[in-house]
Amino acid sequence: MTAAPAIELRSLSKHYGSTPAVDSLDWSGGRGVIGLLGPNGAGKSTLLRMLATVLAQDNGDIRVFGLDPAVADERLAIRRRLGYLPQEAGLYRSFTAFDLVDYVAVLKEITDRSARRDEVRRVLADVGMTDDMHRRIRTLSGGMQRRVALAAALLGQPDLLVLDEPSAGLDPDQRLRLRTVLSDVGQRATVLLSTHQTDEVAAFCQRVLVLDRGRLLFDGTPRDLASRAAGRVWISSAPDTGALRSWVTGDGDIRNIGVPPPSAEVVDPTLDDGYLLVATEETART
């Protein structure tokens, strides 16, 4: 008997007015770290909010651990196994970092006081906030506040971790720490994170989804996404009008994506190239 996937979406839709945020999405996924890429307005946050049980869909079905978040008791059961970092976490500014995470731990029904405090210290250490845990939220930098919110999401070792741009505002050291923590969590749980940084996805995600205008454009490994652009990336010294996308690199060369001319100097594609190609072709197609 195989275990049900952690997440199953069937014809999932959500509209804001007449604008589709998520459009007839079918997908399922299980353990591991899954990166969600897409331009602004692609529907990433809406999808994550629905998975985090804080937003109801208009149509279609969501199952998390085989449970339906539309049913109150099942939603509660999902919430007991869930950690969620929203794009903007509403941190109480007068609380210290420790007290705030402790408060969230109570909200997550961690009632043994001694175990709860140990858990709060553990998650704050995971995000590198041990030295600043007794500072008030209002005195922390934006990046530190983001780490406190992330610590709150990590409480209780959730089976599903839904993270909306977790690395936003973090410095390179903290990003590295984040990758390590999330990779560890991904060994035993499902981690679904949205990001605009393809290097992050390439670094530690086992699976990547590309979403645009609520539709799933790609689902596969980061390597598969990069290989989508194999033979379609080339370097030139002048802008190439035949390219779908071009930009000047740090070396002063021009990197192009599209259908290369016969004499082009084709180079190995990166994940960034694959993502840009998929997204640009979709834009051109529609």
Binding site: V54, R79, R80, P86, V104, K108, V162
Partner: peptide, 21 residues
């Protein structure tokens, strides 16, 4: 007003929701 005055929600997904708070 504590949950209304912040820019986003705090632990909206937690088992103890707005009414328990």
């Amino acid at each position: 007003n504590r949950d209304r005055s912040t820019r986003g929600a705090l632990a909206d997904e937690a088992p103890l929701g707005g009414d328990q708070r």
